[in-house]
Amino acid sequence: MALSEKTREAFLGPLNKNNPVVVQILGICSALAVTVQLKPALVMGIAVTIIVALSNVVISALRNTIPNRIRIIVQLVVVAALVTLVSGILKAFAYDVSVALSVYIGLIITNCILMGRLEAYAMSNGPLDSLLDGLGNGFGYMWVLVVVAFVRELLGSGTLMGFRIIPESWYVANGGFYENCGMMVMPAMALILVGCVIWAHRSLNKEEVK
């Protein structure tokens, strides 16, 4: 089955040219909050991807039966149900990550990317396109989070996914010369790093610059 141009664009667009974080500047708050470590960032990215993809499909399937005046409430109910499910699964199978993410899993309900995709895409497109659009936006969100979290965990804690990358013997406390950069652990630095990602993205995609 050959995918049409529109279907391909639904999936590939959000990965690069129409990225929710670096182009549309959506979902920044959670990007700042969960990127101190790589693992929570990855889990958060996966959770958002699953939720946005599934809720897109559900809303897209229901789109002709939802009365226009209460559509936001219906969308919220669907998203909230999915968030509760994901949150429960995380608590059951990845408790430490769930603790690290604390309220941010619950706050996916208010994530601008979700409501944006449901309103702008799922309400007017078929379920397959909506699924791909949801996956694309989820992955687009995830890669930015992973890039930011990679830098922050490596320079802020000297580890990646919890594994030590910078040897213990380098640290001043152990007679070495190195110190972790405390700025990296602060949300302010996440904002600067997101800025850097946007900077790099804009200079690679000159036509995006307005």
Binding site: V172, E179, C181, G182, M183, M184, M186
Partner: peptide, 10 residues
């Protein structure tokens, strides 16, 4: 300020 927040022990 960067030094102060990044490497407070020093």
């Amino acid at each position: 300020a960067f030094l102060f927040f990044a490497y407070p022990t020093h």
